[in-house]
Simulated assay, not measured.
Amino acid sequence: MSTFEDMGFCKLDTDREQRTGNPEVIFGQGKTVEQALAIFGRLAQVHGRALLTRASAEMAERICAVFPEASHVEEARLVRLGAPPAVFSGTVLVLCGGTGDIPVAEEAACTAEWMGCAVQRIYDVGVAGIDRLLSYRQQIQEANVIIVVAGMEGALASVVGGMVRRPVIAVPTSVGYGAHLHGVTPMLAMMTSCAAGVSVVNIDNGFGAGYNAAAIQRLLFEKTSLP
């Protein structure tokens, strides 16, 4: 039996929520407004919720006109609809190095929220002014999962990784000067971190970090919910 729906321009994975706990998420970049709207509408019909990432302003405007209950988070470039089936205990903490990293950090935070996570945000705490980061030591150590978003040399992930006993998900950003290589330098720095327990997603991939954090939270929720 087919587990996808052929819409002509795409094959929609309508069985994904049953397999993974979340519906298929729409990657808006490269799609037309009409395609994004059609997929969003079908996901909303089947699952009662939908998430569009890398949404253009035109996509967001059209979708929100058809679905007034949908919300457009402009800074994160995403449109989300519907509440998660469960809200997990504990928090996902999203840190970012500088103000320029906030769009990627917001993509991570909003994705995790859509998937059922309680999210805290602490922004502009890069290592160039490390006292800012250390003033939040308690909140950092109390979080279940920590997402660290940073450009430049990406050192923030290593510093945070050395402070906690929880999973740290590092997100390199394309914010930085020439030898930063559009995010390659912080990505390699994060991948070669000497702090144990730091995992790394792709450059500017806030969505992937938020999704991964929510998967960890879901596992904890399911384990603690067993009779």
Score class of each variant (00 low, 15 high):
1 M>E: 07
2 S>H: 12
3 T>W: 14
3 T>N: 13
4 F>S: 12
5 E>C: 10
7 M>L: 14
9 F>S: 05
9 F>L: 03
9 F>G: 07
10 C>I: 15
10 C>E: 09
11 K>H: 12
11 K>E: 11
12 L>R: 01
12 L>E: 05
12 L>T: 09
12 L>I: 10
14 T>I: 15
15 D>N: 14
18 Q>Y: 14
18 Q>P: 09
19 R>H: 08
19 R>Y: 09
20 T>Y: 13
20 T>M: 15
20 T>Q: 11
20 T>R: 13
22 N>G: 09
23 P>N: 01
23 P>R: 01
24 E>H: 08
24 E>D: 12
25 V>A: 02
26 I>R: 00
26 I>K: 00
27 F>E: 08
27 F>C: 04
27 F>Q: 07
28 G>A: 06
29 Q>G: 11
29 Q>T: 14
29 Q>R: 10
29 Q>Y: 10
30 G>S: 07
30 G>V: 06
31 K>H: 06
32 T>A: 00
32 T>Q: 02
33 V>A: 04
34 E>Q: 12
35 Q>D: 05
35 Q>M: 06
36 A>I: 08
36 A>D: 05
37 L>A: 13
38 A>E: 11
39 I>F: 01
39 I>M: 12
42 R>N: 09
42 R>G: 10
43 L>N: 04
45 Q>E: 14
47 H>R: 02
47 H>C: 03
50 A>M: 03
51 L>Y: 01
51 L>R: 01
52 L>Y: 06
53 T>L: 00
53 T>Q: 02
55 A>C: 07
56 S>T: 15
57 A>L: 12
57 A>G: 12
57 A>R: 11
58 E>L: 08
59 M>F: 04
60 A>I: 08
61 E>D: 14
61 E>H: 15
61 E>T: 15
62 R>E: 13
62 R>C: 13
64 C>V: 15
66 V>Y: 09
67 F>H: 11
67 F>S: 08
68 P>F: 04
68 P>A: 03
69 E>D: 14
71 S>A: 15
71 S>R: 15
71 S>Q: 15
73 V>Y: 14
73 V>A: 10
75 E>M: 15
76 A>N: 02
76 A>Q: 04
77 R>M: 10
79 V>S: 00
80 R>N: 08
80 R>I: 14
81 L>M: 09
81 L>P: 04
82 G>Y: 02
84 P>Y: 02
85 P>E: 11
87 V>S: 09
88 F>A: 10
88 F>S: 05
89 S>R: 12
89 S>H: 13
90 G>Y: 01
90 G>D: 08
91 T>S: 09
92 V>C: 06
93 L>Y: 02
94 V>P: 05
94 V>R: 00
95 L>T: 09
95 L>H: 05
97 G>M: 00
98 G>T: 09
99 T>M: 02
100 G>R: 04
101 D>G: 02
102 I>F: 00
104 V>S: 00
105 A>L: 02
106 E>C: 06
106 E>P: 07
107 E>I: 07
110 C>T: 11
111 T>L: 00
111 T>N: 01
112 A>F: 00
114 W>D: 04
114 W>P: 04
114 W>L: 03
115 M>K: 10
115 M>D: 07
116 G>W: 02
120 Q>C: 13
120 Q>N: 13
121 R>G: 06
122 I>P: 05
123 Y>K: 05
124 D>V: 03
125 V>R: 00
125 V>Y: 01
127 V>A: 03
